[in-house]
Design a protein around this nucleic acid. Structure first.
Lengths: 340, 340
DNA sequence: ACTGCAATCGTTATCGGTTACGTTTCCAGG
DNA sequence: CCTGGAAACGTAACCGATAACGATTGCAGT
């Protein structure tokens, strides 16, 4: 069913139609200055030869390509959610999407690949890019919108209200009666990680509970990073009665360690996550977590990029989306009401 | 944090290093014939200017780009699974991946976009493509591997053992005592849909149960297509005691209709799906289904494409992967043992 | 000193398409 | 019949990089 043809180029069409490539180009792009008869001839030649313009050649010459790019650092389930949102926003907008991923992502982590990808795409191929990866200092020719940017970035970006989400989560625990609440932080360089930690601290402080630095573990959003941290927290003589992890991936590892050490959840330990990834609903017990809509993040990022590219942007360049607490079965009042 | 620079080209580097672009190209590609001193100069210029080669220009000139393409017709959760498998197979292989998606996918369905995308990618940008979309007649310059190809396609492809999977599913229902088993078919043109129907028929026939054509609904894998079909089956005076849907998406719609019509599952009706998408584990009751590993499909497809591109392929060009039955809560023995 | 080969590097055609510019064609108006 | 101007179309430069090719230089062997 597959025919391997020599590629049909514009000059093939020109030869078949008896005109120059310039004329073919004008017909293809619907430009002014071609007689109706010639247009018909060229169209027929295109039809017959099955010509399709080359994205590469076009983008090399043209400034606008009507293609947007997306650079992601991995393909987790949340990346798929983001993609769905992006596709929805781009639906029938005239913009196509190119996602670029390199093969070194697994295993060794070569610093700076984001910039490399971005340059490769932004050179001429795309009119703008969405970046779903922790990186901040981009040199580009075209607009970039970051999803979950690095801390302090002033670049256009879309992010969830991580501070409010974290605050709500901790308030939920406080409301249940917890006072010793552990925290496992995310990658420090990310704005999201920082805000979640700030939210944790603010909720405690507001409630008059002093922040105990020894109850804070320094993770990096990588699920594996949480395992030893959870172990340290739970093997203390005075373990916390609840742990709030800055991501669901890490929270799930906390559940794992808790099970391993004989803690029953939520009996001996309450656990709260952040993100609401699909897996969180599947675990036993179901994970209480803060929902952030990756779909919405993708949608808004694409909408913003679209406007930036067409030059019709007027809203603030940093969009913050609301979060909401999803209470499942991993949280309950602490066993002893006398918890410090 | 974003600097919008004029793009740095090879000639900029050449000028800065006081050499020709040819020399820069040789240094960039590690070719033979440049003195150590010149290499150092060029490298330093590259470093200073932050030069990155343009993917577009390179691919236009070169035959090999070390980039593989993927064309998908939508971004469902299974697409993400395929992607994970693809990325794993490409991990540290030297091949990058470009995913091309167009914005017309939602809403109107423009016939032939797959070919358009494929041509645009295969022109010069990629060395080969993976196609995750029902289409069969591709004209390309470079190799194509299809995941779940159309019926009768002889193109290189990777597919699950749909026949065995369907047979097992129906045998499971037969084993529970069901005799009137409805079927909701998938898009007829797809090899997978056809095999699943064949498996359904074969299992019945082998068990000595005659195939009742009126119990077969003609869906198209689109979840929505199953709703009216399920309604027809369940509103008969003699509804089937079990329904096997050719995809989980459609099976979930069957569950919906069953609930709507007052059928209890699995009390009044057993339902089996195919695919094992994540949602199937989340419904109440959990959906019994046939698991096909989209991850594995992606992995094998990428492995195969890689070999095709490098010209070292020797295995058969159609890979069939095993499936397995996942029994959850949507299946049980029929209420009346006297079911026809 | 001369030859020959290899190393080194610049020049240029080329990839496929776009577009500024120049040329030709055609028709209306004088 | 001549002219002006717009419409129609071709020519060629160009985008950024690669690679075939030619030219130059260095150096070992004789």
């Amino acid at each position: 069913m597959i025919e391997v043809n020599a590629p049909v180029t514009m000059s093939d069409v020109a030869r078949a139609a008896g005109v120059s490539t310039a004329t073919v180009s004008r017909v293809v792009n619907g430009h002014y200055g071609v007689s109706a008869r010639t247009v018909a001839q060229v169209r027929s030649a295109i039809e017959q030869l099955g010509y399709e313009s080359s994205l590469v050649a076009t983008s090399l010459r043209r400034s606008r390509t009507n293609v947007l790019g997306l650079v992601a650092h991995s393909f987790q389930s949340y990346t798929a959610e983001v993609l769905k949102g992006v596709m929805k926003a781009l639906s029938r907008s005239g913009f196509d999407l190119i996602i670029y991923a390199n093969s070194d992502l697994y295993g060794s982590y070569s610093e700076g690949w984001e910039q490399r990808h971005l340059t490769r795409l932004s050179g001429t191929l795309t009119d703008g890019c969405i970046v779903v990866t922790p990186w901040g200092d981009f040199r580009t020719r075209t607009p970039v919108v970051a999803i979950d940017p690095v801390r302090g970035s002033t670049a256009p970006s879309v992010i969830s209200d991580n501070f409010a989400g974290a605050t709500t989560a901790v308030q939920h625990l406080l409301g249940l009666g917890h006072r010793r609440i552990g925290f496992i932080a995310g990658r420090d360089s990310l704005a999201s990680a920082w805000s979640r930690e700030e939210g944790y601290r603010a909720a405690l402080t507001t409630a008059g509970v002093p922040v105990d630095p020894t109850l804070i573990g320094r993770g990096d959003f990588n699920p594996e990073s949480a395992t030893p941290l959870a172990r340290v927290l739970l093997q203390r003589p005075d373990p916390p009665s609840a742990i709030f992890a800055a991501s669901d991936g890490m929270a799930l590892k906390v559940l794992e360690v808790a099970r391993e050490l004989g803690f029953s959840v939520p009996g001996d330990l309450s656990v709260v996550g952040f993100d609401n990834i699909p897996e969180s609903a599947l675990t036993q017990p179901g994970l209480t977590t803060v929902d952030q809509s990756m779909y919405q993040l993708g949608y808004e990022a694409a909408r913003m990029l679209k406007s930036l590219v067409t030059g019709e942007w007027d809203e603030p360049s940093q969009i913050v989306l609301p979060t909401s607490l999803v209470v499942r079965d991993s949280t309950a009042p602490p066993k002893s009401a006398a918890a410090a």
